Amino acid sequence: MSTYARNRDYPEALIKILLTIIDMTTEGGATLEQLKDAYEDVRGNRPHKKTIDRAIKRLNVLFDPLAYDNEFSNTSQPIETERENGKLRYRFTRDLASRQVDPTAAFLMALSLYPQQRGMLGDQFEVVMKLVFEEIFSKLATYGNMHKDIEQYVYVTGAGPTEPQKSFHLIELILDGIRRQKRITFQYLRTYDGTLTNRQVEPYGLICRFNNWYLVGRCCDKNGRRIFLLSQIQNVRLVENSIYTIPADFSLHREYSACWGVWTSDKSPKPEKISLRVGKGLAEKFRTTCFHDSQQLTPLPDGDLEVTFRVTGAQEMLPWLLGWGNSIQLLEPAWLVEELKTQLQKTLALY
């Protein structure tokens, strides 16, 4: 009877090796060095070729119990090794994406989860585990193929942070502060005058709007809730000898779901109605694009479209409204119409 290849107890390394092979199969196969890199990423040390060979045998057993004694099998191994131009190439030969598990196999899988019942399965236990892994990796194969298609055929661009890693570090630190109920201190760059200000904040949460991350929290210096753009935050640290509690009635979703942007207030205002008249040339754009969860459309007899929103912080709509030029007419509220006129007059004065 076949015995498992020794791999010690490093399942994470096995998974990383397998995913590397699956990922590189469409490009001719993974090299030995790539598999060593995958192992080293998980374990932290460079493996010998024999370690990789044992891992491949172990993976082949998981997919096909007969594959370990390959001299007695008439089928190709799930992972095949070939030498090309002096380099070993490892390729995955199975079509995982098409794998389906029938109800009987699903029952056997469930039964196999109970150690006391495994004796009932006899030789089927290896087959059951094979089915389990094939079903799991079929999902990974589908994801891998989708990821490759996205990389090759989809290009996403637009405004966003120039240093996204900096935002990730800040997010990690802020979430740590929230979990531990610690205040944070930082310097904040005011955009209107370029001055660095010192802030101490009790963090409530994070918001991502229009590809930018924001911190929401109570500013101790201003004694009120404020919102801070992460890219303007510098020199952050936790205040270890502090403690605070997020108000029990505070909810990020409730406070900001109606916002057009990130306008904030300690007392949440009621959303107000914003009404636009969209020309028929642009009407289809609004039929196929939702600019806010509250968006409502009403066709007009001449082919134009009336679009309404119910939002808070409507002043933040001004740059968006200006960007449409004469294709959109703002109908209400009156105060926002006057604000828009003022902005247009200031812009015209520049020319």
Score class of each variant (00 low, 15 high):
165 Q>T: 09
159 A>R: 15
164 P>H: 05
181 Q>P: 03
181 Q>L: 11
152 Q>W: 04
179 R>A: 12
185 T>P: 00
191 T>M: 13
152 Q>F: 05
196 L>C: 06
164 P>R: 05
165 Q>I: 05
185 T>F: 01
190 R>L: 08
172 E>H: 12
156 V>L: 07
174 I>P: 00
153 Y>I: 13
160 G>Q: 10
191 T>P: 04
184 I>L: 03
198 N>D: 08
171 I>K: 11
157 T>H: 07
161 P>R: 02
158 G>P: 08
169 H>R: 15
188 Y>R: 05
186 F>P: 00
169 H>N: 15
154 V>W: 09
170 L>Y: 02
189 L>N: 03
158 G>V: 09
194 G>M: 11
169 H>W: 10
179 R>W: 15
183 R>V: 02
198 N>E: 10
172 E>Q: 12
154 V>D: 11
185 T>Q: 06
169 H>K: 12
174 I>W: 01
153 Y>R: 09
193 D>W: 02
173 L>E: 08
191 T>C: 09
162 T>C: 11
183 R>G: 01
182 K>C: 03
192 Y>A: 14
172 E>Y: 10
168 F>L: 08
173 L>S: 06
187 Q>G: 04
190 R>N: 12
160 G>A: 11
159 A>Y: 10
173 L>A: 06
171 I>D: 06
163 E>D: 12
160 G>S: 08
173 L>Q: 08
161 P>M: 01
176 D>I: 07
170 L>G: 00
174 I>D: 01
190 R>T: 11
186 F>M: 01
194 G>K: 15
184 I>W: 00
184 I>S: 00
186 F>E: 00
181 Q>V: 06
197 T>A: 06
167 S>H: 07
178 I>H: 06
170 L>P: 01
184 I>T: 01
186 F>Q: 00
177 G>R: 01
